[in-house]
């Protein structure tokens, strides 16, 4: 947990002092940006994250002050904005699946580039298959799957973020995982028991 007041307190205070909202940005923008960049690429992520915080600011009085951590709320706003770039996201998955080259691959020079290339090579084997599978998901299923896998949200947090019941989170996640599993060649497509029960 970051030092200082919790998010709910910051958000409440930002009504008086909008600059306080910048603190919320400092707390969560990096994490949010990385998630959005992973889906849409870094350039679009800049726009989406900026807009996410602006939308959050406009809606700040609707923030549920009982929730000390604002991240799920911010992810929910970002999810809506990401949906607005659906075609762009899907186009990149398709390109990756067809060509084996990821248009959303990390760009820009840094000392870590050499390591990054190694990592990419290792991840590439199943990359196109995963991209194809992600592309085949419905929007709702994709949000749930990626909020769990990439944003590390709990089921409860995903439910809060997307404004859907917990049961829906479970069923969407199971459906999405089933598709992913079937699409990744080196995994055994036979589903485990838990999946059958919830799916």
């Amino acid at each position: 947990m970051p030092d200082g007041p919790d998010d709910a307190t910051l958000i409440a205070r930002s009504a008086d002092e909008p600059e306080v909202f910048a603190q919320l940005y400092h707390r969560h923008a990096a994490e949010l940006h990385r998630y959005v960049a992973r889906r849409l690429g870094s350039d679009l992520a800049d726009d989406v994250v900026g807009e996410t915080f602006l939308v959050a600011f406009r809606r700040r009085e609707r923030y549920d002050a009982r929730r000390p951590l604002a991240l799920p709320w911010l992810y929910g706003i970002a999810a809506n904005l990401i949906s607005g770039h659906r075609r762009s996201e899907l186009r990149a998955y398709r390109a990756f699946a067809r060509t084996g080259a990821d248009p959303v691959a990390r760009t820009g020079g840094s000392d870590a580039d050499a390591d990054a290339v190694d990592g990419k090579v290792a991840a590439q084997a199943s990359g196109p298959a995963i991209a194809a599978a992600l592309r085949s998901l419905s929007d709702g299923d994709r949000h749930v799957l990626l909020l769990v896998a990439w944003a590390d949200l709990s089921y409860q947090e995903v439910a809060e973020a997307l404004g859907i019941p917990l049961g829906t989170v479970r069923s969407r996640l199971n459906r999405a995982r089933k598709k992913m599993r079937a699409a990744i060649p080196e995994l055994d497509p036979i589903l485990d028991e838990e999946m059958h029960h919830h799916g």
């Binding site: 923008a29 990096a30 940006h33 990385r34 960049a37 992973r38 870094s42 990821d102 959303v104 691959a105 990390r106 820009g108 840094s110 990054a116 990592g119 990419k120 290792a122 991840a123 199943s126 990359g127 995963i130 991209a131 992600l134 799957l145 990626l146 769990v148 896998a149 990439w150 995982r177 992913m180 599993r181 990744i184 995994l187």
Partner: peptide, 16 residues
């Protein structure tokens, strides 16, 4: 499993 595979996907995405 598929979630682990998925977590490796674009795992090199740079942070701000």
């Amino acid at each position: 499993d598929e979630l682990t595979k998925l977590r490796d996907f674009r795992a090199d995405t740079a942070a701000l």
